[in-house]
């Protein structure tokens, strides 16, 4: 299985290549990708240099253009696709049907990967993407169990990539407007979830209070491990009970399922975290690379220290395990 690694900056890109990535995915410094954070991402020139570095090390570069084109401003996304193709991206990761149609028609030879944001969660959906846009690979949404993935992979004629480590969307990706409901900015339209511009941390006595827009998202006691102020991992009240209504602040970690995923026919494992620093990228990529080669019994030790870097300092296998539902 290939290891697909995140890079938010050229420095992180270099770290990923050094650490043994089979492919690195990244995006341009604008709203054409779903990690449109301040100070993050690549200029055209930075992407050109990064692709050259990757080529020299036989590493592939995937360019994520995985937001939905804003009506009237489609040219921004088309230009990003044109440039990524011209710069030699090995694959484009797309979510918007209109953009997929553009790329499929204009660059029929270009490898087209379907972003997790497109939410292709079953064989008929994937057949549609192959038939309509010539998709070569789909990144599966984090709503499926390993058994679902195995069943699905057997039925379809394209490669499957799944998330193996990092941030965990609790909601089906690309189908969530919680962020924009609270802040006006969404992953689909603006490439941001729970944007920093709307986040406030407030110290209230011993407690750390996180707020998003006009809403309190969480309250952490002294010393309690904290998480991102994302809505799906916030603490809320239902009736008289306060708790994590959707999910605790945790990260995804499916290292224990590596063999099952390989047996299921999965082509590539993806690491989330273009917004994380290069130190994180280096550590996670090299640990997972080792884990992929290691005997099952040795894997736990290899990835144990990754947990400390995770949201809430805990990890979960998420939807890959049926009991998570």
């Amino acid at each position: 299985m290939e290891l697909i690694c995140p890079a938010g900056t050229p420095a992180a890109f270099r770290e990923a290549v050094e650490a043994g990535a089979d492919a690195v995915y990244c995006g341009f410094r604008d709203e054409t990708n779903a990690r449109n954070f301040p100070g993050l991402n690549f200029s055209r020139e930075e992407l050109r240099q990064s692709i050259a570095l990757a080529r020299s090390r036989r590493v592939l570069t995937f360019v994520a253009l995985n937001t939905f084109m804003r009506a009237g401003d489609e040219a921004l996304w088309y230009r990003a696709a044109d440039d990524a193709v011209a710069l030699g991206a090995d694959a484009l990761i797309l979510a918007d049907f209109g953009l997929m149609a553009y790329v499929a028609e204009k660059y029929p030879e270009q490898r087209l990967h379907v972003s997790v944001q497109a939410s292709a969660s079953n064989p008929d959906a994937i057949r549609f993407l192959i038939e309509a846009f010539g998709a070569k690979r789909v990144v599966l949404p984090r709503v499926l169990t390993v058994q679902d993935i195995a069943r699905l992979t057997r039925q379809i004629g394209c490669e499957v990539e799944v998330f193996a480590f990092g941030g965990l969307c609790v909601m089906a990706e690309g189908r969530c407007s919680l962020s924009s409901y609270a802040t006006g900015k969404s992953p689909n339209m603006n490439g941001v979830c729970s944007p920093a511009s709307h986040v406030r941390y407030r110290q209230d006595g011993e407690d750390l209070v996180s707020e998003l827009g006009a809403y309190t998202i969480n309250r952490f006691g002294a010393g309690e491990a904290s998480g991102y102020p994302t809505l799906c991992k916030g603490r809320f009240e239902i009736g008289d009970v306060a708790g994590y209504a959707f999910e605790d602040p945790v990260s995804l970690d499916v290292i224990d399922e590596i063999d099952a995923l390989r047996a299921a026919g999965v082509s590539a494992l993806k690491i989330e975290g273009r917004q994380r620093g290069k130190a994180y990228v280096a550590e996670v990529v090299s640990s997972l690379k080792k884990a992929l080669r290691a005997a099952p019994a040795e894997r736990a030790a290899l990835v144990a220290r990754l947990r400390a870097m995770s949201e809430g300092q805990r990890t979960t296998t998420g939807a890959y395990d049926k009991r998570w539902r």
Partner: peptide, 8 residues
């Protein structure tokens, strides 16, 4: 997700 005329 239909966000633009190209998709429509």
């Amino acid at each position: 997700n239909v966000y633009n005329a190209a998709t429509a």
